[in-house]
Design a protein around this nucleic acid. Sequence first.
DNA 1: GATAGTCTGTTGGATTTCCAACAAAGGAGA
DNA 2: TCTCCTTTGTTGGAAATCCAACAGACTATC
Lengths: 223, 223
Amino acid sequence: MKNNYSSLPDCQLFAGLEETNLDSLLNCLEAVPRKFAKGEVVFTAGGRFDKVGVVISGNLHIIREDFWGNRTILARIGEGNVFGESFSCAKINRLPVSSICAEATEVLLINYARVITTCSSACAFHAQLISNMLRILAQKNIALVQKIEHLTQRTTREKLLSYLSAQALEAGGDIFEIPFNRQELADYLAVERSAMSAELSKMRADNILLYHRGRFELLRKDS
Amino acid sequence: MKNNYSSLPDCQLFAGLEETNLDSLLNCLEAVPRKFAKGEVVFTAGGRFDKVGVVISGNLHIIREDFWGNRTILARIGEGNVFGESFSCAKINRLPVSSICAEATEVLLINYARVITTCSSACAFHAQLISNMLRILAQKNIALVQKIEHLTQRTTREKLLSYLSAQALEAGGDIFEIPFNRQELADYLAVERSAMSAELSKMRADNILLYHRGRFELLRKDS
DNA sequence: GATAGTCTGTTGGATTTCCAACAAAGGAGA
DNA sequence: TCTCCTTTGTTGGAAATCCAACAGACTATC
């Protein structure tokens, strides 16, 4: 059954691959497009999932259920995003999470074994695909480590300094803009929004930084 | 220059590879063993690092320097462990961290490009190597996500419940042992040890769990 | 079983965060 | 400009955490 994948959204996993090659590659990967209704389960906690999923349209939630059965949404996976790859790559035998469609959702299920098994010369794009997969995992990794560094700080002030310092270093200058509003920043750092606002005020009073909305300037010791 | 790698410690990166094949593989990867003295720098923040490092003997520290120049040790990499792989895989152009030897240390530097570029049939072990690399990144990823879940909880009690619940689920039973002592657990959850001990006592009083040292039992609502 | 050293639990006061409610500032549309 | 709505900042009391100091439990060694 031939499918038209030209509608594949931008997707890190297929970055650098020509659209013209995509069809043969997807064939080689045993990629299967599937449609799910809202509330349907793509993979279930406790089972195995030896595939890599790509959301073509719609949204799905990664859900964890704790010891007492309380559910929490760990992530929302949108168009073009990959899911399940960590569990497939890590060869986990009992999935710790489920994925459930938040709305009508179309996904592409790819056989993970085919991703890492470079086939004959017919499919020279495996190398690119593997490189993409490594990059996806590695980038996520780096972002997670950085977030943990911030979260590990004990006080709100330290968390803010850790985050803002990292942003300044990344921007390569003392003045920079952050991609969060206050509520989002508070959620990211796992602190209370109003308390965080208050702390920012104190830090300004202490000549540590200047800010207006999303624009910040860190001050060096002697300025 | 032929080197004897028979002394390579157990290493996830080379898992599943026969020792007899190792020499030719390492050759193919342009692996270079290097010795560093205590305090020497293996890779420097700000630069590029397109290699993967494996610690053969000794220890090195991954170090981050913040906006004001304060240094913190992010990780200690010991024998058999891989380092730098996230930055190479993510193709970061300016390293955010440095690595400095904590003692006299011997490392194996591998050309990352050679890891992902499957060569001719002469080296059939690339597939295993790539699979190993993916597994290393993915496992780290899963562990980091789980840690973030715990750290994101606001109160000490919630952090403990999040951690212990995950341990119980992993163990597949209500009774389980944790791999940390109290101080280590407190550090992992980024809370104060004595406050955490106190909270554990309260939770026991509230009939949420039982414990003795590293052995815990979670109690279901109606027991 | 005596001893020393480490790990765990307890306590109270200082500090910090949370929470709720409200005030002020900024932005979009009429 | 005026109005409505969202975002950000401020405040004070309640709750939780941190911190330091100490007591009790456990372990290894002699």
